[in-house]
Amino acid sequence: MLSYSRSFEKFLFSNVEKSLPFSIAYSTEVKKEVKEEFRVLNLKNVKRQTQPKRAQKQLEALPPRTNKMPVDQDWGSVWPGPRSFHPASVPLPVRQGYVEKGVAPDKYANAELIKIPNFLHLTPPVIKRQCEALKKFCTPWPKALENDKECEKHFPIEVTSSDYCHSAPTIRNPLARIVTIKFKLSSLNLNERAKDKFLRLVGERYNKETDTVAIVTDRCPLKKQNYDYAMYLLTACYHESWNVEPWEELKSEADMEYYDWSKNASKKSVEALFGKQTEDIPNVKEYSEAVSTLMNEGESEYSVTKYGDSVRKLLGLPDAPKT
């Protein structure tokens, strides 16, 4: 019973609360209407008087640093490392670029100057200073290696690899692993057959003009590993070229990559023709050379004529008439 009466009381009270604000609101609205002006119907949305915008305060650019630079400053500390051009740091009236009429643009806001690489960090005094700093890590040049010839003789293998120095989250550059070794083919102890096999093994790594073999290794992740691998390749190729496999003995005349006169039918027929050994036949050397050129260097009007002349000499025929 008690609980019931309480709930009823609550209900009643809440009703009173709801009705009260209505009455208050009504009374304030009447007061406002009295105070304000009559509102204008603004259909065309004509601008009313606007508040003036606050003027943006222009930041004053600092005068270029070059103005304050003393004449005897230490340039190495102004421009310590490689960097693209900055007009305010370089106290030089440089100009770059082209305009149709007038002079070339000056250094300020000049993209052309920024684009090109500069060597402002490598001025002679700076280089000198850096060399001085490095000197304490160097050892004296061996006296025996006076010229390039001596160097080549004592150190026939030239090893080339690159180190990279730059600011980045990692100090490792994958290009640093690549190792190139170069050496002259003549510095290897090879005979004619072994040389031929070596050249077949190295393939296009041999440069005929300079007589050098260049082996580039980049398959291992580290420089040391690649260097070891290159050395291994060199050793393996060298010893393999001295190896004579059983199937290599089967190489016949048809497999020859060049024409060797002394192993060919031409020699046999000449020997049969004269009934003598090759050494006893006069003028045979010129003939054999002519045949070899004809076969090795391909046929041309010139080589055929040469061949003809040598045959005439060999057989003792009168010379060809000159045309």
Binding site: A265, L273, Y287, V311, L314
Partner: peptide
């Protein structure tokens, strides 16, 4: 090889 050495004219 059959004709060698011959005189080409």
């Amino acid at each position: 090889e059959h004709l060698d050495p011959f005189v080409p004219i």
